[in-house]
Each structure stands twice: as C-alpha cells, then as structure tokens.
C-alpha cells in the first residue's frame, strides 16, 4: 500500500472535506460526486437556447454582453501595438457611438501586461470606478500547461508584478486525466499563492479546465469542484486553442457547480466560457443559461465573463441594427 500524500491545506477544501487533506480524501470526495446525466444536460442546454429575446431585452442583453467580455488577443504574433489597439477598442468599442459600454477586461499573454496597463492608463481597474477595465494575463505555460511548477509560478508572479488584475491559469490535464488530483490541486493552490501582491491582496484567479480535453461531463464536473476547492475565483472552460472550446452544455454544467457551491457555502464563484462564441445569438443563450441556473446576480463582470475576440464585433453590428433599423456591415466596425 502506498503512503497517502498530504495535499496543500486550502481553506475551502479543509472546511468542506474536513479532517486532514490527503490525496486519497480528495480523490474519494471527487469520485463521490454523482455522475452527469448527459442527455438531460444537453436537452436542458438546447431548451435554454431556444428562448426568444427581442427588442428591449435584446438591447439590454447586447450591452450586458459587451460589459462581460474579456477582449482577448492570444497570438504568437501579438505586439505592444496590437495590444494598444485592442485596449482602444475595449475603451470605446463602437467609434460611432460613445454610449456603448466598455468591456470588462483585456486578456493578453503575460509579457504584454505592461503594454496593456500603460495603454489603459487611468481607466485601469474594474473596481476603481465606472468605466474601469481590468488586465487579465494567461499564465502557467498557457495553453498546454506543460512546464515545471517553478516555471508556472514564475510566469504567474511575473504577470501579477507587471500589474495584471486577473490570472488565467491552465490545469495540468495530463495529471487530472491520470487521476493525480492531488497534483492538480496543489498546483492551483500554489498558483493562487503566486497571485498574492505585496500588499496582501490577490489577483483574481481563473482556472481553465480545458473541457475539450477532459472528454466527459463527469470529468468537467469533478474538475470544476477541484478548482473551486483549491481556491479558484473563476472557473473557465477553455483556452480557445483546443476544439471544442466553450459549449453551452459544458458551461451550463459549470454554472450548476457554481450554484451548488453557493448553496453549500454562500460563496460566489465566477464562470467564464471562452473560445468559439462568435455571435450575439450564441452569447445571449449563455446569458439565459446564467440567469436561469446561477441567477441574475451572476450577470455582472465579477461573476461571469465571455472570453472572446470576434464576438464583440458581432454584438456591435447587432447594436447598430437596433439603433438604425437597418442591417449593418463589417465595414462599420474595426478590423481587429
């Protein structure tokens, strides 16, 4: 018999699981979570996607979608110039309409954080006042997560030191799929610690499950619980680099976990579907799923985000259509 390994004593897990946190107690807890009714989940998601959202509700939804977007550029070809233009777009999404709301955050690779912070200037910080925008950085050897823990922690600490308000980390899917839950757990706890700023506050930690690589809904549910227990502030579906990325059933499942966690502890965890959401129509389906699963109070940037780049333009086209009464075209929004 192997000796049971102790895992990091994260406060949430200690409270919920009780006793001493070990690899096997964690495993027992996660494997004890009931399985997902896949057919029921997909039927429920399809049903939520069939709601008709029109006129004033649609106008509200479009503006809300913009204010929930993490405007993202995660390309090898990113430059400080591209990040600056992305920030300009985030601050003023529709150049022809200053009433358009601003996005929630600019999401970039760690080395682009200083460029984003500088470009945002006085508007940096979602909580610093109306119109503030956060800077989110992907870290921990995004998107694969295949690096040593030391590298991942340095990656995270570096982004936080540069001024990132939010860290999007990836879990070690290889470890998770081979059942080494304790290792995944310890990594999240360690990254969370690396998010600590000198003044004792923390950068928000979003944990990317990369659901496209987890294969089953059961795994998604377990990974969601694992991430929350380890201290994640947000659970995020995907990196956007793996297909399938965010899907409505997967997001619905994660919202259910968040709802259950809230019932269990009173604590609110955020959800971020990312990748593959390109049209306003799709995004509105997600809003409906959020409102009818976790609750309407989740429809705010501290608890729900869209990780997207091309979605914003489609929302702007829809907004222009509502305002002008005629269909708009790609010539009337910026080329990103």
């Amino acid at each position: 018999m192997t000796i049971d390994r102790l895992v990091s004593p994260a406060s949430r897990a200690t409270e919920v699981l009780g006793g001493e946190l070990t690899e096997s107690s964690l495993k027992r807890y996660l494997n004890g979570i009931s399985g997902v009714d896949a057919v029921g989940l997909e039927a429920r998601a399809a049903d939520l996607g069939s709601r008709s959202i029109k006129t004033t509700s649609k106008a509200w939804a479009l503006d809300r979608i913009i204010s929930l977007i993490d405007l993202t550029t995660l390309e090898g070809a990113d430059t400080p110039g591209k990040v600056r233009s992305l920030v300009a777009k985030g601050l003023n999404p529709d150049a022809a309409d200053p009433t358009s709301p601003r996005v929630a955050a600019i999401c970039v690779y760690g080395d682009m954080v200083p460029a984003a912070v500088e470009a945002l200037g006085a508007s940096h910080g979602l909580d610093k006042g109306p119109g503030g925008i956060n800077v989110a950085a992907v870290a921990t050897a995004f998107p694969s997560g295949r690096a040593s823990l030391a590298v991942k922690l340095a990656d995270t600490a570096d982004a936080v030191a540069a001024g990132a308000d939010e860290i999007d980390m990836v879990i070690d899917r290889g470890a998770f799929l081979s059942g080494r839950y304790g290792q995944v757990f310890d990594e999240i706890v360690a990254v969370k610690e690396a998010c600590r700023r000198p003044d004792g506050s923390f950068a928000h930690l979003k944990v990317i499950l990369e659901t496209g690589e987890l294969n089953t809904y059961d795994n998604v549910r377990r990974a969601s619980w694992l991430s929350i227990l380890a201290g994640g502030d947000f659970i995020k579906t995907s990196t956007g680099k793996v297909a399938p990325a965010a899907t409505l059933p997967v997001t619905l499942l994660m919202l259910e976990v968040v709802r259950d966690w809230h019932r269990l502890t009173g604590e609110k965890i955020g959800v971020k579907p990312a990748g593959g959401i390109r049209t306003s129509k799709d995004a509105i389906k997600y809003l409906v799923a959020v409102a009818e699963t976790a609750g309407e109070e989740w429809l705010q940037p501290h608890l729900f985000r869209f990780g997207a780049s091309s979605l914003l333009n489609d929302v702007l086209l829809q907004r222009q259509k509502l305002a002008s009464g005629h269909y708009s075209g790609a010539d009337y929004v910026t080329i990103d």
């Binding site: 222009q320 009464g325 005629h326 269909y327 708009s328 075209g329 790609a330 010539d331």
Partner: peptide, 9 residues
C-alpha cells in the same frame, strides 16, 4: 427594402 438599406450590400 431590407436589402436596399443593408450596409453590407
């Protein structure tokens, strides 16, 4: 009328 006013036409 929808095609005549469509900005992408």
């Amino acid at each position: 009328p929808w095609l005549a006013s469509h900005a992408d036409v």
